[in-house]
């Protein structure tokens, strides 16, 4: 492989992972924009989406899906979309339920009280994922390996789209990620900018009290925000699972930190910021894997996070704002 080919390969990895990170980052940034809460549990909602997808795959029969004769069949695209939608809806409603039960009673409490409660929810979800991983299903590898990483079956055909003799590999998974994440992002942008509820969201983000005075049902807006954020997280978890072919009960922590870093990098509260930030973090990770060392990649991401928070807390696209007293 030449230098350019190595670089191009990392760009492909980076873009694909970055699109997934961007989807998760949107969940952080939307919730932060509306209720000023770092939804620490978002990463673990994402984990549970992955576990639901693996359960569904197991229930449908992993062996049939893995059959090489049917791989590449159009039914696999149908399965993929089905998983994305199911996991998305599940995570969306889970997110709304968490908001109703835990965050809503604390809405007027100090910010740090809310953050600690969110961390608590995150730990509860991690434990649920651990138990889920011990479910007596073949795809989970039996009950005694509850904490182990689970293999996620290859749903899409694994061959190189650029031809078998090309050194740069572009797989069907990469295309699938673009085919699913880009429409979701466009849809979200249109929804927020064009619909009545979207206008309500923008108004609530600007000033919740004024929004309520203007007759906006802010409770409904907040629920909608958690629903959409959760949906995007759930969709991302399926994309993550088919791309990395593995899930584990603690994957939400790292993915969540990457996504939060992306949201902060883009400017927290800004939707295009989260998308750009996600892609940038994906690229930074890929380049660090290649040109520094894989084991230092997490350190690089956290260093980026700290440097941005210290030197440019408003991120790339965020507005400079003073802390409300």
């Amino acid at each position: 492989m030449t230098e350019t080919e190595v670089f191009l390969q990392q760009v492909i990895y980076g873009l694909s992972n970055g699109m997934i990170i961007a989807l998760v980052a949107l969940g952080y940034t939307m919730v932060y924009g509306i209720v000023e809460l770092i939804n620490f549990a978002h990463g673990d909602v994402f984990t549970l989406g992955g576990f639901l997808a693996l359960t569904l795959v197991g229930a449908l029969g992993a062996a049939a899906i893995l059959d090489p004769n049917t791989l590449g069949d159009s039914s696999h695209w149908l399965l993929l979309v089905g998983l994305v939608v199911t996991a998305g809806i599940f995570c969306g409603f889970l997110n709304v339920a968490i908001d109703k039960v835990v965050y809503k009673p604390l809405r007027r409490a100090p910010k740090l009280t809310q953050l600690v409660a969110a961390i608590g929810v995150s730990f509860i979800l991690v434990n649920i994922a651990l138990f889920w991983g011990g479910a007596p299903m073949e795809v989970f590898g039996g009950g005694n390996a509850a904490a182990a990483s689970k293999d996620f079956p290859e749903i899409l055909e694994g061959s190189n789209l650029l031809g078998e003799d090309s050194n740069v590999v572009l797989r069907l998974e990469d295309l699938a990620i673009f085919a699913i994440t880009i429409p979701l992002m466009i849809g979200l942008t249109l929804f927020v900018n064009r619909t009545r509820l979207g206008r309500g969201m923008r108004a609530t983000a600007q000033n919740p009290v004024a929004a309520r005075l203007m007759g906006i049902n802010t409770d409904r807006v907040i629920s909608a925000t958690f629903l959409i954020g959760g949906f995007l997280g759930g969709a991302a978890s399926v994309m993550w699972a088919i791309y990395n072919n593995t899930i584990s009960f603690q994957m939400g922590f790292r993915a969540g930190m990457d996504a939060f870093t992306a949201a902060v990098l883009g400017g927290i509260g800004s939707l295009p910021g989260a998308m750009i930030g996600g892609v940038l973090i994906g690229l930074i990770r890929a380049m660090s894997d290649q040109y520094i060392e894989t084991r230092w990649t997490n350190v690089v991401v956290f260093a980026v996070l700290i440097l941005i928070l210290v030197f440019r807390p408003s991120g790339l696209l965020g507005l400079k704002q003073r802390e409300k007293v």
């Binding site: 835990v102 009673p105 604390l106 409490a109 009280t113 809310q114 600690v116 409660a117 961390i119 608590g120 929810v121 995150s122 730990f123 509860i124 979800l125 991690v126 434990n127 649920i128 651990l130 138990f131 991983g133 011990g134 039996g142 009950g143 005694n144 509850a146």
Partner: peptide, 25 residues
């Protein structure tokens, strides 16, 4: 060891999480 629910050690995260959420609430 086949059943993840039957080992008390596996409830640590849940206990930490519930402790934080309930205390905050």
């Amino acid at each position: 060891t086949e059943n993840v629910l039957s080992s008390p050690d596996n409830y640590k995260y849940l206990i930490f999480g519930l402790a934080l959420v309930l205390m905050m609430r």
